[in-house]
Design a protein around this nucleic acid. Structure first.
Length: 727
DNA sequence: GAGCACTGC
């Protein structure tokens, strides 16, 4: 059966340690079998007699496939003794003793059952990936262990570089090492950083192709653009090789925005490649994003080329803006990438950076998601648990988010009525927390339920949560061709913006009886649209359960009586997105955010330009928002997201009206962040005397900023306040 | 007038 897995030899030691300790950290490298074997060992030792063994996974596919394998190894039917639970799919029953689930599902479960009493063991697998949900679970589980004393067992799997830290977090609990089943990978460093990692990857790839024996090559790049460039350059170079001088080559791009069929196609090809005799004299090059680091395993890879970079999304709490930056990977990531070369036989990893860079510049571990996301949703969730001993600002995180980030979350929650001015969760907030949505979206649903447009709002919210998977996958080249023939007539949002457009798209699909052909005609991903339908159905059910009063969640009933200006819907969005409001600047179509600190906008030739209030933004060019007869955009919009790519853009905007905005501005004036952070009354920062507290504090907010810059910010603030006073 | 890595409830 699974006796060949390294972890099996350690069974006695692991079980003894688990018996003696409430929490154990297991360091298990790839291929150790920890994901499939730990649960079975515990099952054999009787831990399923007093409860269920829960094993969390950060990804849905992993939860399903691991559960399937364990059921197979135990010779039971999936869904009976061994089951899994992911969103929209609960394959467990009364018989279930081992349950695989996504970390998000376990987190949701703890809302209705804060003590997670049904579980005798909780295994947080892949904890080193540090997903937002796993990090919150780590804190909650630490608390549970204390409460439930010896009864609950917790196992946490992590990577080598992180194990000690996790152990410290759990009062120096034992750490066990389980070797993996990887073949040795020879690491080859470059002497220096190349000027262009595309060119350098190209050279290295061709070197391998010409000199090294057969075996596929996996190249880690940062994004679709680079991948496309490298793929075409590699193609050219391979074509130009003299025929017969070396083996053939096939080159594949691999990234998230490829249509899933293509990704599946690749796996299929790889499957054929691995399990049938390899095509004679042929080498494959897979040019991938970090999707190939963890999410997709590409078998047959012997050579890895690692650029040392990754594109990563991060949130800046002082501007409310996300940015996508190309940054250096961590040591953990570098090792994970290298490991991809050693799955089937000894391999080589070519690092396009020096060992000094690796040693001295790379962080040990990736910055956890919790330190680079907006925390509004997580903070609301923790507040809704109403655990008497939990103060969100003192919550025991493995890596605490910045104070600023927590304050930002509190401010946002206050603006959308989820917490009151002392930081206590409101009844509105409590209901919001029950919905599996970001706070702005759940607030929108609740407001829509009040003003009679719930059906529309459900559609918009569902569309937004699947938005990125909606447009049919397209390579950038074919896209360019398509640009001359714009996709067939999708609705335009009637000028009110993107939310209305999303609504109209779904309504049209509904009117076309959810026809798959219709999606294809309109260039929409069938899978994405089906997902929208699923989400919408789930949310409708939840709203029926949660919200008071009569509901109208059917899509087609209100078509005839619908307001042409979508006033109620836009109003609901304005209430829900009160924390994401922007004001158009006088005389032109740029906007600025409302409710954020003064920002350094740019620094030019030593001269510092300071925007008085908020960030300068533009409506994303892909938006359907329309200008009026004078060519001007609406005075106020709410946006779904701020993202800095080539410049700061608002993505998905909706026109809102001045009368709806006024109450938000009033609320902002009253905002007192110190009172908000006080929570149940005890202020966490008594020393603070700042009255307008949404301003950078010396030291913490703008580190390393010279004094004169600080004073310029101060001056900008003063000007702003003076201007405000005149109004 | 741009294009965005990857997850998840």
């Amino acid at each position: 059966m699974a006796s060949h897995l390294p972890i099996v030899q350690f069974e006695d030691k692991i079980m003894k340690t688990v018996e003696d300790n409430a929490v154990v950290v297991i360091i298990g490298e790839t291929g150790s079998g920890k994901s499939t074997q730990l649960s079975q060992m515990l099952h054999r030792r009787g831990y399923t007699k007093s409860g269920i063994i829960a094993v969390t996974q950060p990804r849905r596919v992993a939860a399903v496939s691991v559960a399937r394998r364990v059921a197979q190894e135990l010779g039971v039917t999936l869904g009976e003794e061994v089951g899994y639970a992911i969103r929209f799919e609960d394959r467990t029953s009364d018989l279930t003793r081992i349950k695989y689930l996504t970390d998000g599902v376990l987190l949701r479960e703890s809302l209705s059952n804060p003590e997670l009493n049904q579980y005798s063991v909780i295994i947080l697998d892949e904890a080193h990936e540090r997903s937002l949900n796993t990090d919150i679970l780590l804190g909650l589980v630490k608390r549970l262990v204390k409460m439930r004393a010896s009864k609950l067992k917790v196992l946490i799997t992590s990577a080598t570089l992180d194990g000690e830290k996790v152990s410290e977090f759990f009062s120096d609990c034992p750490v066990l090492n389980v070797p993996g089943k990887l073949y040795p990978v020879e690491i080859l460093y470059s002497e220096e950083r190349p000027k262009s990692y595309i060119e350098s990857s190209l050279r290295t790839a061709m070197d391998i192709h010409v000199r090294e024996p057969e075996g596929d090559v996996l190249i880690f790049m940062t994004g679709q653009d680079d991948i496309d460039k490298l793929v075409s350059k590699l193609d050219d170079r391979v074509q130009s090789l003299e025929e017969g001088s070396c083996m053939d080559a096939i080159i594949f791009p691999l990234h998230g925005s490829l249509p899933p069929e293509l990704q599946a196609g690749l796996s299929f090809l790889l499957f054929v490649r691995v399990f049938s005799p390899p095509p004679p004299n042929c080498r494959r090059f897979i040019v991938a994003t970090n999707i190939a680091e963890t999410s997709l395993t590409v078998d047959g890879v012997v050579y890895v080329i690692d650029s040392g970079y990754v594109k990563q999304r991060q949130y800046n709490p002082s501007t409310g803006m996300y940015s996508l930056d190309i940054i250096q990977i961590s040591k953990v990531q570098a090792n994970q990438r290298a490991g991809r070369a050693g799955r089937t036989r000894p391999g080589k990893c070519y690092r396009l950076y020096s060992s000094e860079v690796y040693q001295e510049e790379f962080l040990d571990v990736t910055v956890p998601e919790i330190q680079r996301s907006s925390l509004a949703g997580s903070v609301l969730y923790l507040k809704s648990l109403d655990l008497p001993d939990i103060d969100i600002l003192k919550f025991d995180f493995l890596d605490p988010p910045s104070f600023e980030s927590l304050e930002d979350a509190l401010k946002q929650l206050y603006l959308i009525d989820a917490i009151d001015d002392t930081g206590l969760i409101t009844s509105v907030g409590q209901t919001m927390a029950e919905l599996p949505l970001e706070p702005s979206l759940s607030r929108t649903l609740m407001e829509a339920n009040e003003n009679g447009c719930l059906s529309q709002a459900l559609t918009v919210v569902a569309m937004l949560s699947a938005e990125t998977t909606l447009l049919a996958g397209q390579s950038s080249k074919s896209n360019e061709k398509k640009r001359k023939h714009p996709p067939p007539d999708l609705p335009d949002g009637s000028g009110w913006g993107d939310h209305v457009q999303l609504l109209q798209i779904f309504e049209q699909w509904d009117q076309n009886e959810f026809d798959i052909g219709w999606c294809k005609d309109k260039g929409l991903q069938v899978r994405g649209m089906k997902f929208v339908k699923d989400v919408r159905r789930q949310l409708s059910q939840l709203m029926q359960k949660i919200a008071k009063g009569s509901l109208n969640v059917r899509t087609n009933e209100r078509y005839k009586e619908r307001q042409r200006d979508y006033k109620n819907l836009r109003k609901a969005l304005c209430v829900g997105f009160a924390n994401k409001l922007a004001e158009r600047m006088v005389q032109h179509n740029g906007y600025r955010t409302i409710g954020f600190k003064p920002q350094l906008v740019q620094e030019k030739e030593g001269e510092l330009l300071v925007e008085a209030f908020g960030m300068k933004l533009k409506v994303h060019p892909s938006s359907t928002l329309k200008t009026d007869e004078d060519g001007m955009f609406p005075n106020y919009v709410v946006y779904h997201e701020l993202i800095a790519t080539s410049r700061p853009y608002m993505r998905n905007v909706c026109a809102v009206e001045m009368p709806w905005v006024n109450p938000i501005l009033k609320k902002l004036e009253k905002l007192n962040i110190d009172k908000l952070s006080g929570g149940s009354g005890h202020s966490i920062r008594e020393e603070s005397e700042t009255k307008v507290s949404s301003l950078p504090k010396k030291e913490e907010a703008v580190t390393g900023v010279p004094d004169d810059r600080e004073s310029r910010i101060q001056a900008a603030r003063d000007r702003f306040l003076a201007r405000k006073g005149k109004k």
